[in-house]
């Protein structure tokens, strides 16, 4: 069962009065997101990720295409849909003079909560997002991490079935990012929430997402699990070596070796097929009279897939 079923979604931004400029943000994106999944949208800056997320969240109208979210048509049943979804972005902002509990109270009311239910909900979110000590501090006095946590709390105020997170850990300290990721994983685990997130951090995508779509220039170039993407893109395996003597420039000339990078005395060779090339590499090292001090074979990082696709 799909939470999001988008077909051929297109969006072009037009600007300028006298000199009309057109920027194609989405050029026919089709995407299905299963219910209860954490789905990642990856891509370089300007790829169309935020545009797609904003269209799904009913903040932006598409020029073309059909989108059904949680069984609602995004264009015709936007109001009913808005009750069931919410969104948080890494660069979210709220009215500066308001305090976290007032902000949550305000948005809670916009979703129809009031009285004891609203008070309970606000307290729950404040506690869950570790904002208790800051609930009476003005928004403009909060740190980036606290602002981000407040944005997440606000996005959970209506207990959405579908949550959009646009760069949720952008600019956060590593320890805060880790805790926020744990929060996100728990939301799906404990509440069965469907989560669609955009991120620049490959580790985040790899850790959190069941499935990833890679977007570039308004098109989906590839989609699948992190492992599937690595296989699909076929950028090869990585053989990491520590040799004595440490330099082996001749490795790049070997058959099946796509490239080699040396750093801190460690050589990382990307080969088309590790199973086939490893014996050949070891034989060549022996023939050169070098000694292998350490060797590791691994799949490429998602980041390397990203670089390959963004190229």
């Amino acid at each position: 069962m799909l939470a999001i079923d988008a077909r051929d979604v297109a969006k072009t931004f037009r600007s300028g009065v006298f000199r009309r400029r057109e920027t194609v943000a989405l050029a026919g994106v089709s995407l299905g997101v299963p219910r209860g999944a954490i789905f990642g949208l990856l891509g370089p800056n300007g790829a169309g990720k935020t545009t797609l997320l904003s269209i799904f969240a009913t903040l932006l109208l598409p020029d073309r295409g059909s989108i059904t979210i949680l069984g609602h048509d995004v264009l015709r049943e936007a109001s009913a849909l808005r009750r069931r979804l919410n969104m948080a972005s890494g660069n979210a902002s709220f009215v500066w003079a308001m305090k976290p509990d007032e902000i949550l109270d305000f948005y809670g009311r916009l979703y129809g909560l009031s009285g004891a239910t609203l008070r309970r909900r606000v307290d729950e979110l404040i506690e869950m997002c570790e904002l208790t000590a800051h609930r009476r501090v003005r928004y403009n006095e909060l740190s980036t991490g606290l602002k981000q946590r407040l944005a997440l709390a606000k996005a959970l105020v209506n207990e959405p079935e579908l949550l959009f997170l646009d760069e949720p850990t952008l600019g956060l300290d590593p320890d805060v990012s880790v805790r926020l990721r744990e929060h996100i994983a728990r939301l799906r685990r404990e509440r069965g929430m469907t989560i669609v997130l955009t991120t620049h951090y490959m580790r985040e995508a790899e850790q959190l997402c069941d499935e990833i779509a890679f977007i570039k220039s308004g098109r989906v170039l590839a989609r699948g699990t992190a492992a599937e993407l690595k296989r699909q893109i076929r950028i090869g395996d990585v053989v990491a070596l520590r040799l004595d003597p440490p330099d082996a420039p001749w490795l790049t000339d070997m058959a099946g070796v796509l490239r080699c990078v040396t750093s801190n005395g460690r050589i990382e060779c990307t080969v088309d097929d590790a199973e086939k090339r490893l014996p050949e590499i070891l034989a060549a090292i022996a023939a050169e009279g070098a000694v292998v001090r350490d060797i590791q074979v691994r799949e490429p990082e998602l980041e390397e897939v990203f670089v390959e696709l963004a190229r």
């Binding site: 969104m87 902002s93 500066w96 606000k154």
Partner: peptide
Amino acid sequence: YDVWSKSVKHQFLAPI
């Protein structure tokens, strides 16, 4: 208030 604090989208994301 929302324009100045760049938070316009939040209220139009809600079912109001």
